[in-house]
Design a protein around this nucleic acid. Structure first.
Lengths: 202, 202, 202, 202
DNA sequence: AATGAATGAGGTTTCATTCAT
DNA sequence: CATGAATGAAACCTCATTCAT
């Protein structure tokens, strides 16, 4: 019988992850000390290690959490009744998501994480992740081709990979100019480009 | 009158930068020690500090060097006699550049550097850099609009920023899949998308 | 009126001591954590501190228990009707005792304990212990001298101290070679040496 | 070309080992911190790691050094012209050696080291060490048997192992009673016992 | 009485930087 | 100019002990 409720534990974990995201975003993974996280999360250094086995694990879990959160979008996507509508919904989501401040912290960490695992990825975490993301796009594009919404000559594999590459690039630059409205304009322009490319020209 | 020739000093600096690029690419900025750089460059730890004031400065100079190197492309671009030809040349360069292994090392460092300065940039290094890059594209697009090669309704500011955002995204993903031929296909597809977007539809 | 029976408490203490002996033997005193002991004894970390004031106290009590257990031999020794018979019985006991696996664990801890108290012994625990052990031997030798079984010129004080020194050395080496049969041969040879030394040569 | 002479380096290593022996003897391996060693050796914590890769390595080297030092006795032993003379010399050495204070520190560490490797010995360091020591005795005893000095029925293997077991026991007890003169009497009595056992009774 | 979450001092080790040679 | 030994601050992580439940 556990001493504290499952809910309590989850909240604690969430608090530490939130604090970590905040610290990592501010100082970067390396320059953030476990002490920093402890202070930011309102617990003690020792407590951190009750919930995570290492600073690295926090890093991993943070990424996991964000990815999971993003994929909740799937439920909404299936409800859209055309490929175009799905793209529209996706872009609406990407635009809204980037604006929320709480998410913004995590974006910075996301990129550091990738750089990090590009050097330490033993379980090919990255490959799995890429597959998840590309599949999301590929399915929509294929649907669009079938329904006649999109051009037939699109290489769906390549396109869906490119889609996220470019989107990541846009988000990466957001980190630097830190200008929400500019970012939004970028994303909208990107949407237009994608649309121009996919759609059958009248 | 300096004791050693200017040439000698430049060679030494170059050797240290080369070694650093190699080490940073392999282990990342943080995990690379000054000892690593000393060993890789064939000098001593003490000597490093004769030519650079800190490990951080090496990081900065490395980025500078790479940017300078890239902008040598300007000389070639002016020789192309149309906006389309300039884009073509640029893409040819981007494709060739990514293939050279020596450059590939530096790409990884580039991103780490950006993440790094996104947290420590006091002199808004990033803004200056972005301006240089966007201007390069903006000039070409404007030329294309004037000559009637490209659509008139392109927002040149936004487009040129977006251009590099997306390109950076593509390069970023190269770091992870590490697959040259796939990367090339991405870049070519990207070229087609850009072209489709810019050009007047017949 | 205690809330739980004395018997319950004793069982709990015994369980913790057993578990500690096991853990200490496996990982050593320092590398054994209170968590290890808690897990091995089937209680909680908090409970340990209901029965012992510190990890160190467990160490002390463990030694006490073992010493007490050993001195139960006294009851058997008085029943032997000659000094030689007593020595014989003692050796038979030492041989049997070393073989029992449960005791073997405790031997390792014993030495660690001695090393430990050799640095921290404030109550001269060691002196008291040595006296108990030497007296056991001294009494037998004196009896043997009186009855004419042993040489008259034996310095009983020195001999009895030496007896345990050497015996401890033999047990110490058992810890390392971990070879029961070899250990037995050692002890038997030792018995012969002691016998050769004590007995009047015919 | 090394910056400092080989001699300098050796002295530094020796100083750290001396300081370690002192600290370990006083507080034990575990309770001695690297800070303690640094302070005692008059250097900085960081410097320790220039000469040793870990605290554990210091422990290992300390043992090595002492063993090497002891085996210098071999040169003297071969000059003794009978097995009895060799034993005599050995005991004279053991008696003198124990008295020197500088060695006394190292004795304490020796035992801790054994306990330590009995739990962590991956390269069976102990076996190698035992072989070296037993061979030393075995050779003398075999010589004595050949020359007719000693009894023919001695099991040389067992005897030489037992010899060191018992001797170690005596030294172990020295650690506790810390009484040099008593220790000497023990060793002399031990010598007599060994002699009584080995020699042909007239 | 029993639990196990919380604590924080303290352990080992690393490394950017300095400076005497 | 070149070197690499020396430094010591700080990092991550552990764990004996406490205490609210």
């Amino acid at each position: 019988m556990p001493k504290v409720s499952k809910k309590y534990k989850e909240e604690k974990v969430a608090a530490i992850l939130d604090a970590s995201a905040h610290c990592f975003a501010e100082k970067g993974y390396n320059d953030t000390t476990v002490d920093d996280i402890a202070k930011a999360s309102g617990t003690s250094k020792g407590s951190i290690y009750l919930y995570f086995s290492s600073k690295e694990e926090i890093f991993y879990r943070l990424n996991e959490r964000r990815t999971e959160k993003f994929f909740e979008i799937k439920k909404q996507l299936v409800e859209q009744n055309s490929a175009s509508a799905k793209f529209e919904y996706l872009f609406r989501h990407l635009l809204s998501g980037a604006i929320e401040k709480e998410d913004l912290n995590t974006i910075a960490v996301q990129f550091e994480f990738w750089i990090y695992i590009s050097k330490n990825d033993k379980e090919s975490l990255f490959d799995a992740r890429v597959k998840m993301f590309t599949t999301l796009i590929k399915d929509i594009v294929e649907e669009g081709i079938e329904t006649g919404e999109f051009r037939k000559d699109v290489n769906t594999d390549e396109f869906s990979k490119l889609f996220w590459s470019m989107m990541d690039g846009i988000v990466l630059h957001l980190l630097f100019h830190k200008n929400d409205s500019e970012h939004k304009r970028m994303v909208r322009l990107y949407e237009r480009m994608v649309s121009t490319y996919l759609k059958i020209q009248p």
